[in-house]
Design a protein around this nucleic acid. Structure first.
Lengths: 203, 203
DNA sequence: CTGTAACCGAAGTGGAGACTCCGATTGTAG
DNA sequence: CTACAATCGGAGTCTCCACTTCGGTTACAG
């Protein structure tokens, strides 16, 4: 019985614990890609079997890499959070802070309209008490972005981050339920942006 | 075999098909009340058994009155839609149209924060192609309310109903996910309202 | 090339929940 | 009061899904 020790957790982030066999590493990547696609389309309620099928592996392989469906979901959320955070930071760093915030808002809503994963992630980010580090990082990146937009006079100074997050989450949620034409999305965002801008700048 | 004919559907609306026995009518009412409470708290994923228990009847009785979980859900949605529509019409009929719309918006969000049923209902109402009559009536009532508010100059004339519905749904959805203190809710609504008002009136 | 340990995957397990069946119960007509 | 048919209710069925198991397969060291 040569195996008595087992890797306690295949780890959440993305890098395997240590020298994973070649085929194992390949399958792990496939599973992550398939899971991201399926979760984005159908939400967290999608069955593990569907993911396995889409990845071209057996269901047992999925559970070998991710002992729980939840752990798989966390891995995806982690990846999405990191990506969103990077985008947000890039926007905050470069160019005009006045337009950066509104560009971020619009872009996030556009993504959310097609990816349930983004919406679920944002819903987590909206709750003040956040456990996961990547989600916390996303929150902070948004805070920076809002702060800069306010300093630039593009957003009313009395607006706080929580309500911005609430609005962001709300519009994203709504974009999932109603099939938005780009036109409707634009008009809805226009109203929200009008509410966020200083009174003088509105219109 | 004296029974060969059976009522094809216990009907969705609320009134029993015909002279229901006394205990049956009482149980039907209890089931509806219990279902409304449970669905409002836990959403449509709540189990039928929990509803039966809360109503103090066996699960068989629930399925006798409502052959499908979906039919029970429809009955509840119907009732909620009718109630919301009446409230909305009353607001549109009475007093100041300028404040009526904002009062409606605020009140609906407050209700949605505690009742998942309301949110699910609104999500249906947001889709242009609506099947159920009560939901359609709700949409029309909102249209009247928005129209009057616009004529009174309280809402920008270029705003259309779909984006108002989208915003309403969005804020309601968001209020479910984040545990809102009244303070945050008020600030979020203030932003949306500022975006809806004519530029001159804002502030 | 060969042994072996790690890996794969599909059948199997257990539980949850929607829905059914049928003997026990009860309202109600006569 | 009695009979009977409608109603009740909960044990049982069926399906779906997360998760496990284990014999077959494969990558990699020697």
């Amino acid at each position: 019985m040569p195996k008595d020790q087992r890797v306690p957790e295949p780890d959440i982030s993305g890098a395997p614990a240590r020298t994973l066999r070649a085929d194992a590493r390949r399958n792990r990547t496939r599973i992550l890609e398939a899971a991201e696609a399926v979760f984005a389309a159908k939400g967290p309620s999608a069955s593990t079997e569907e993911i396995a099928q889409k990845a071209g592996v057996g269901i047992g392989t999925v559970f070998r890499h991710f002992p729980t469906k939840e752990s798989l979901l966390k891995a995806i959320m982690h990846a999405v959070a990191v990506r969103l955070t990077e985008e947000t930071r890039a926007l905050a760093a470069e160019g005009d802070p006045a337009t950066a915030f509104f560009a971020f808002f619009t872009r996030t809503v556009e993504q959310a309209a097609e990816k349930k994963t983004v919406v679920d992630l944002l819903a987590q980010a909206g709750i003040p008490v956040t456990v996961a580090k990547p989600v916390l990082a996303l929150r902070e990146a948004v805070e920076v972005l809002v702060g800069k937009a306010q300093q630039a006079g593009a957003v009313r100074p009395d607006v706080r981050v929580p309500e911005v997050m609430a609005l962001l989450i709300g519009v994203c949620q709504a974009s999932l339920h109603t099939r938005w034409e780009p036109d409707l999305r634009a008009r809805t965002l226009a109203i929200v942006f009008a509410g966020l801008r200083p009174a003088a700048t509105a219109g």
